[in-house]
Write a protein that binds this DNA or RNA. Structure first.
Lengths: 199, 199
DNA sequence: TACCCAGTGTACCGATCGGTAGGTCCACGA
DNA sequence: TCGTGGACCTACCGATCGGTACACTGGGTA
């Protein structure tokens, strides 16, 4: 495989520009006219490539979540202890959050703008993603490594990661891997000093 | 003080209904006409009580954050160890999240719809709130109780709490206090079993 | 040359947007 | 009894919304 075609199709370009616009101003606040101007396409040309505005939002969310679930399954099935895979899971999420920040912002913040049944479908994909984390925690607990994780704690942990779209910046001083390690050590080892660690 | 007036003013009612509407459908997606119908007020009457739509959003966020900061200062200055106050801080946040869920949803999700300088102002109030948590962590670290907390970890912890508006329900089986304890034990003690705890 | 059709721009659609003008109603005080 | 002002409603504003109709262009093909 020498090199995939460098040029993105017009449809892909529209989706990319829409992702950035939605992330910046919000889905509802972004007009089709603005998308038209930002892509350099007229209204008619725009609608030649997309079905409607809502499909753009749906595609952004679907692409993001389906990819996340695919990768989560891959990591879950990969070798190593539950803790090792947990680190991988965390690093991958932070990396994805950093590289696809706009799509994460839009998916997390504006998914309620979706009509049924898309909205429910997206919700299911999110639940599915959370279950992969839960599976890892359960594995760790069964192996005697972790304390059992309450579902509400699992939601908090995953939420802690995903809500990072608020401040993550690809140009930040810490790499996604470093940040993920900061997070994992937080909920794995905790902040409290052991008696043996006291100064 | 026998009893505060039971009846809310029309202005307060408008703000309350707007909070619920914004939370349910999103700020941009909620029309003034819908707010008019839900309050039972005509358009003219509505604008007699409010300046414009955006001021509603601003007031929702200001009321929430100013109250949160006031309470945080109070707890920070109250007695006890850093850990004790941390538990109080967490419980208070979860309780507030549970009782004022609609306002939290709107403030967290739609604050970007605010024009400058309001947007920046709200951002500052949020930073202020985070600093009260940071102060508690710093106190605990200085007392030799906690490991030093990286700012990114502090954001993650506070984010873990605030992002709970997504699934918190006042009628849930766990009380805000119970949930807050679940969270605090998570980042204070961690999930990992100590060697002495191994089965 | 004649045709075709993917891709595009322009002009326009009805609906709805946030907001306002101007009048009505009524409780209250002089 | 009249005037005043708070609270309210109806009718309307220009702007913008998402979406469509339709004509046109240009490169490839028969």
């Amino acid at each position: 495989m020498a090199q995939k075609p460098v040029k993105e199709t017009t449809g892909e370009r529209v989706l990319r520009v829409a992702t950035e616009l939605f992330a910046e101003k919000g889905y509802e606040a972004t007009g089709v006219e603005e998308l038209s101007k930002s892509t350099g396409l007229g209204r008619g040309a725009l609608y030649y490539h997309i079905k409607n505005k809502q499909q753009l939002l749906l595609n952004i969310a679907l692409r993001l979540l389906e990819n996340a679930n695919r990768e989560a399954r891959r990591i879950l099935a990969s070798g190593g202890t539950a803790e090792e895979r947990l680190h991988r899971m965390a690093e991958h999420l932070l990396t994805d959050l950093s590289t696809n920040r706009s799509a994460w912002i839009t998916s997390m913040r504006d998914w309620q703008a979706l009509d049924e049944p898309y909205r429910t479908h997206v919700g299911h994909l999110r639940n599915e993603y959370e279950q992969y984390w839960q599976a890892l925690f359960d594995e760790g607990a069964e192996a005697g490594l972790f304390h059992p994780v309450h579902p509400m704690q699992r939601r908090a942990i995953v939420g802690m990661f995903t809500t990072s779209y608020r401040w993550i910046e690809p140009s930040g001083s810490l790499s996604p891997k470093q940040i993920s390690e900061l997070y994992v050590s937080l909920f794995l080892d905790g902040l409290r000093k052991r008696p043996s660690e006291q100064a």
